[in-house]
Design a protein around this nucleic acid. Structure first.
Lengths: 339, 339
DNA sequence: TTTGGTTGCGCAAGCGTTTGCGTTCATATT
DNA sequence: AATATGAACGCAAACGCTTGCGCAACCAAA
């Protein structure tokens, strides 16, 4: 088998406790012995068994990350950034990919992270039952894109303000008929769609533009949904001259719909997204960018801080800034647009 | 603290060993007692400590997955699929995101997976030193997109054949000046760029088209690189009428370059990619699709099989099929193309 | 009734660490 | 010279499980 702590202890001629202390930089070991131990450990290829050490110490040096659809750019990017932060701090990451309802159910009934992680970072939006299950772990918790929650550190953007910036941009360009492609929040505590809609309504009201419910469509926060939604808007009696898509992926779908109708952005229709998707640049999509990786980093740091100073008050709720990125899909309305 | 196995043993009035056997479905426990134990465990919210059980049993029920850039669609998707497979089989996933050289070095010097995982799945391409380090773990190993390797199960596509299909498609459309945007394999054993280039050369030779080195450019397998490469091709004395990009991301960059030059695909230039990127559809990019998620699933399954039947011979090398997806960026050459 | 085989369970050792406490020994203090 | 002090280290008890073995109790076969 692989070398154990007693093997290196024997090699140096000291006790296992001394090896343990030496390797973890604890005091009580002379520099001379410390060096011998380090050398012996290296030559034996010794690595402490995480199982044994966490059993003995109670700390696992592991963070649980639960996420839906790791393959999607958005979640993958957050995960990527968070992992880097945890890894650099010496923590390992246990990943639970809970895209499917079965996986999610399995996770919350078996709770495989119990006694296995020192903290949990969740990219999911939880109902109260799930939140309670997580709280029962009694470890620091962090999550995203939701209203403040007891027991959780939550990070996100100011969705309402971000949407306002997007729509204001369209208004400033001179648009008066502005459509929206949004989504529903479902039964969960996912506040994003409602907040972004509110931002849209805010700006319309501010600009004295009457709200036309026919211009609000549901894109389900997917590319295909965005395509369907734009198709729907184009079929309206009086189509909009500009569209605010609540996410870049829906905006991409919308652009695709335009192409299929032989229309062009921004000549025939302005489109603005929200997210700052990496491929928005390729498409030349104007968007409100949120620091996606930045949010992963931020949440990870907050969690790490709580692990270092367990008594410090949890930060509760932090919001990161967004910014408008001007590209090629928005312009003043054309005298003769579609229809 | 949280409940331990002795707590539930005491609650039922049996020994800890019986609880252990009952909960893991081992024989030697009557149905009656088994049910009582299950009930007690549920009511106490008991979950076995993974640290303790793996220390005692030697099995960790954990798979190590090492990957670069989890945020990129390609790797994220493979990871996503693999995690689902592992999760369904009852294994947890320890993720190591080794995008940066520092993270990579840290990983291979500290080897945090030693004694911590039952197998490792790597999305990285390793040099021999790294491969040896992994082999020293003495667990089943799997990796991707490289030549067969002792000790590893490797899954991938037939890169050469896939490239052939792509270029053949362009030839069949009537193109004779066909550019390529490729990449270098670097010092590693990443065979993809050379294989795909070989496929390109194969078809040219087959069609009796002389090979013009000026039409081969390096796009570094990134969007920006693809953009630069296409710009370079457009500036050539005699630009190509069609371009084969070795990856979809480079093809997207190429399309962007075309747009910036006020050129259009396929009218002014045909472009074909390779990968089957999720957003290739949005862009209408013709491509050779490889089953990205499928490869993650496949590798995970092969690994799981090795864990179940340790003595079965490892499958060595498996190749999954690719297919041409016709979309809107390829067409016969126009009588008056660019130049 | 004895024998042999099963079934259901408990005992206790062991997995590889960490850590509180005790011991030794050298050095500093009176 | 006697004593206190601290550094360096070893001992042994956890940590919470798994598992080989032993021991009753039971049933079937002889």
């Amino acid at each position: 088998m692989t070398a154990s702590i007693t093997d290196v202890a024997r090699a140096v001629g000291v006790s296992a406790s001394t090896v343990s202390r030496a390797l973890r930089g604890r005091p009580g070991v002379s520099d001379e012995v410390r060096e011998q131990i380090a050398a012996a450990a290296a030559s034996l290829g010794y690595t402490a068994s995480r199982s044994a050490s966490s059993l003995a110490s109670g700390r696992t040096l592991t963070i649980g990350v639960v996420a839906p659809f790791v393959g999607r750019w958005f979640f993958g990017t957050v995960l990527d950034a968070a992992e880097n932060e945890f890894g650099a701090a010496g923590y390992d990451v246990l990943l639970y990919n809970l895209g499917s309802p079965e996986a999610r159910k399995r996770f919350f009934t078996k709770m495989p992270v119990r006694k296995r992680v020192d903290a949990v970072l969740s990219l999911l939006v939880h109902d109260e039952d799930e939140a309670d299950a997580l709280r029962s772990l009694r470890v620091p918790l962090a999550t995203f894109w939701t209203a403040p929650r007891p027991g959780f550190t939550v990070v996100g953007i100011d969705d309402r303000a971000a949407a306002q910036s997007a729509v204001r941009h369209l208004v400033n360009l001179g648009h008066r008929r502005i459509g929206m492609i949004g989504g529903t929040s479902g039964p969960l505590h996912w506040t994003t769609p409602v907040e972004r809609r509110q931002g849209y309504l805010d700006v319309l009201a501010d600009a004295g533009i009457p709200h036309d419910p026919a211009l609000e469509t549901d894109g389900g926060y997917t590319v295909e949904g965005g395509e369907r939604a734009m198709t729907e808007l184009l079929a309206a009696p009086r189509p909009p001259t500009a569209v605010f898509a609540q996410s870049d992926e829906m905006a991409m779908g919308a652009l695709r719909a335009l192409r299929l109708h032989r229309l062009k952005a921004p000549d025939d229709m302005s489109v603005i997204g929200l997210d700052g998707h990496e491929l928005a640049e390729v498409l030349g999509l104007t968007t409100i960018a949120q620091p996606v990786a930045g949010q992963g980093t931020e949440a990870a740091r907050l969690l790490l801080r709580q692990l270092e100073e367990p008594d410090a008050a949890s930060p509760g709720h932090v919001q990161v800034p967004t910014r408008l990125i001007l590209r090629d899909t928005t312009a003043p309305p054309q005298p003769r647009g579609p229809q």
